[in-house]
Nucleic acid binder design. Structure first.
Lengths: 242, 242
DNA sequence: TGCGCGGAAAATGTCAGACATTTAAATGTA
DNA sequence: TACATTTAAATGTCTGACATTTTCCGCGCA
């Protein structure tokens, strides 16, 4: 039986894991400098290229950052929200595309998560968030907007909604779900009528958030979810019929 | 100003990005074999160690998997839910611990997300999920359970709740939030009375989910959130007073 | 004919040493 | 003091070699 520790892994993987553990368990703190590659090589009794491969693994997870030059080296990185967003988005996007996640499943997840934000958003939204939402609604009403631009605006609108909850952890968690949906959403061709309907939903949501009416916002969001699902189903059926 | 493309990055980072793009954009599909390291080195006009560093970066993100031996090589990996879970959890844990996310913020996010699952969980829960929840409730009532075991059981309970929604994307998104909270939860010392209270909440939740009563489950969850927050606040104050 | 066994080949994994480049501190000088 | 220069310490990259693993193919043998 394979244990979780993967004892037969490559040396570079083992070393990466050892350093990762040290960071996660707090034995190395943010900003602290790791020993130089040569020193690490000696400590672990391996060659420098092997150490370097381990460090690159960690760098790929934004666990460390490297700096060249004298007194440079590898430093334990403070994982910023930005970096975490980025990773979440790539991971989520790939997960969806590689596991054949259905439009329904992804859509359901996305709106369920967004719904979780509305009470907080209704309570805490700032004029800034509202302005962003209104601006995107306006853009979505413009004729001649490409489907992709429409989708991009949709994402911006929903991210503003999520950010309005004023909880960075929520924003981070949801970034993945919202952004990862985009490729699936891009498959939909939005007719003028469906755009109009979506804009109406968005307006209802923005109004409710502005009024601090969480229940109304949730209702509108649920209806939007149902409508989006219906649109998606239509596209899938048309696609299957070909 | 730095652009998103990071034009001044290391060669290994550039190569990793190029391959990553090829995968994300679908130019390479799951299971496909990458050229050998030597061939890649020639294509990109760099040395083999540089290529290897790039590949390790991708391996760290589970984008590729390597296999030794003849007809081995690097293959585009099918990102499994398991792997995605794992990455989400490490990233979330680090994000929380490194950015001094407060107990309040994390707690709020966690319960908000869980609340998003309850309507689906109430509609779809299987006997299996219910059995897990009941079993964990029973364990939580056992005297002599350490605080850590209590927390671990709590996590299992909540994961069962999330999984009951029957949406793998939701489960994936929430794994991070729930697990990442554990270190913060572990700081709490649970008195016999508070455990009793939590068990009561859990029982209410399980009952509501079993009965398909989403609203009752949400209410119980919200009260549990408020109670947990209160507990956490108490600990923080006691800690600050020292 | 069929089966197992062993070697060849192809690929990744690892090592050693060298050189290039970058960066900041230390040093020297007007 | 202020500025230019040197220098040292790191990472970044290259070359070439060897070790290891795994598959395939052909050979001998029953």
């Amino acid at each position: 039986m394979e244990t979780a520790k993967t004892p037969k892994a490559d040396l570079s993987a083992q070393i990466a894991q050892a350093i990762r553990d040290a960071i996660v368990e707090g034995r190395m703190i943010t900003g602290e400098r790791l020993p130089s590659e040569a020193e690490l090589a000696e400590q672990f009794n391996v060659s420098r290229p092997t150490v370097r491969e381990a460090l690159k693994r960690l760098a790929a997870q934004s666990l460390i950052r490297t700096q060249r030059g004298a007194f440079g080296g590898a430093f334990v990185n403070r994982l910023s929200y930005e970096e975490a967003y980025g990773q979440q988005i790539t991971t989520s996007t790939l997960l969806l595309s590689m596991n054949g996640v259905s439009f329904e499943t992804a859509c359901e997840a996305r709106y369920a998560l967004e719904r979780a934000c509305t009470p907080l958003a209704a309570a805490r939204r700032t004029p800034d968030h509202l302005a962003t939402m209104r601006a995107e609604i306006h853009r979505q009403g413009q004729p001649g907007l490409s489907d992709e631009s429409f989708c991009a605006s949709d994402v911006t609108f929903h991210r503003a909604l999520v950010d309005a909850a004023g909880n960075p952890v929520l924003s981070y968690q949801l970034a993945g779900a919202v952004e990862a949906m985009q490729p699936l959403m891009n498959m939909i061709t939005f007719t003028a009528r469906s755009r109009e309907a979506i804009v109406a939903f968005h307006t209802r949501i923005a109004d409710a958030i502005e009024a601090g009416d969480s229940a109304a916002a949730e209702t509108a969001l649920e209806e939007l979810a149902a409508y989006t699902l219906e649109l998606g189903r239509g596209v899938m059926e048309a696609r299957a019929a070909r």
